[in-house]
Design a protein around this nucleic acid. Structure first.
Length: 309
RNA sequence: CGCGGGGUAGAGCAGUUGGCAGCUCGGGAGGCCCAUAACCUCCAGGUCGUCGGUUCGAGUCCGACCCCCGCAA
């Protein structure tokens, strides 16, 4: 077994923004040497379908690393290349594709994963959003070893984070990413030198999340303003929340809860801004975006469009 | 050639069959009031995205281009 002052060869596997600060902290840590990066292929994105590189790919280029971008890991197309990397450990963060067992087991010490929840709570694809949606007072991030089941492997370490009740998905994601970046190198290092023993999760307490889609962004004003407010924050900025006015979509970026009774779905003016009555309390819509338009304030909306019927 | 909306005053919008360019905010001046972010009066401010075409006349019709955005991926 290697000692802690030896440099470990590490393979980084990830795609989204969430992974970048974590990978950066690995890159800046003398205990690790990055032998390779795997990220998703460039994909057509946006209206013009221009190929877009993943945030991890952009990051890796700043480190002069050319990432592998296989369409699939299951066909074994990159197995040989990965084997040659001679990785001691692999770290998966927000990769977005299934990684087959033989690849997971290729590194001597296996493959670790960062999951932004207090596992076994919120396994699955949307842990950050769920923490906000459910109105939790705390969440956190977990570092674990990947096993054969989704977010099921033994834990290396966790860190709690207290929620203010005002954070958006984007903000919480950034925060948990930075928190993770602080603890991942140490946890991996202690695990590799044998100081840190993986602890099995309490599987009886496991809860699961489902992928958030744009359909989840539809707001029903019959619901209470508190849960609607959570939804608006949990889906901000992606995929975003919206309601329909006059057959057109109105996206809602930011809303404020005010105490008020009335008929749900009724729009009214509140201190010059657009507001809507909900099932319990009401929401002031501070920042909205009419279909095909730019983001505007609720006040600008009223000036231009007037009060919806 | 994925579908679609839009570029008009500092901001957000309207502009009907082509015929003097408007609304709500904001800005300025004045007034009312014990006072006000409230109310009243008046004022300023627009090469109507760009280029070309049709026409006596184009924000409006035709063509090309630039930019912004929603959906879908």
């Amino acid at each position: 077994m290697k000692t802690s002052n030896e440099t470990q060869n590490i393979l980084l596997i990830g795609t989204s923004d969430f992974a970048v600060p974590i990978f950066e902290s690995i890159a800046n840590d003398q205990r690790f040497y990055i032998v390779g990066v795997i990220t998703q292929p460039d994909k057509p994105a946006g209206r013009k379908k221009e190929l877009k590189e993943s945030p991890v790919k952009e990051w890796s280029k700043t480190k002069s690393i050319l990432p592998l971008q296989p369409e699939s890991l299951k066909d074994g197309s990159i197995d040989e290349q990965v084997k040659k990397m001679n990785a001691d450990v692999a770290l998966v963060v927000a990769y977005g594709k299934l990684i087959p067992d033989d690849l997971l087991n290729m590194p001597k010490f296996g493959t670790a994963n960062v999951h932004p929840s207090l596992l076994p709570e919120y396994r699955g694809p949307a842990p950050i959003q769920y923490a906000i949606l459910k109105g939790n007072h705390k969440t956190g991030t977990s570092v674990m070893l990947i096993d054969e089941q989704m977010d099921h492997g033994p834990l290396l370490t966790q860190m709690e984070y207290k929620l203010s009740g005002n954070e958006t998905y984007q903000e919480l994601s950034d925060t948990l990413s930075r928190l993770s970046a602080n603890i991942v190198p140490e946890a991996l290092s202690l695990y590799i030198n044998g100081t840190l023993k993986p602890v099995e999760q309490n599987h009886n307490k496991a809860t699961f999340t489902k992928m958030i889609t744009s359909n989840d962004g539809s707001l029903f004003w019959e619901k209470d303003a508190v849960s609607l407010g959570r939804r608006i924050r949990a889906l901000n900025p992606e995929p975003g929340t919206y309601c329909m006015i006059d057959g057109k979509r109105l996206k809602i970026k930011h809303a404020r809860n005010i105490g008020r009774d009335g008929k749900p779905g009724e729009y009214f003016e509140h201190e010059g801004s657009l507001a809507v009555q909900c099932g319990g309390d009401a929401l002031v819509l501070d920042e909205v975006q009419p279909e095909g338009k730019k983001w505007i304030t609720g006040e600008q909306y009223l000036n231009g469009y007037g009060l919806p019927k």
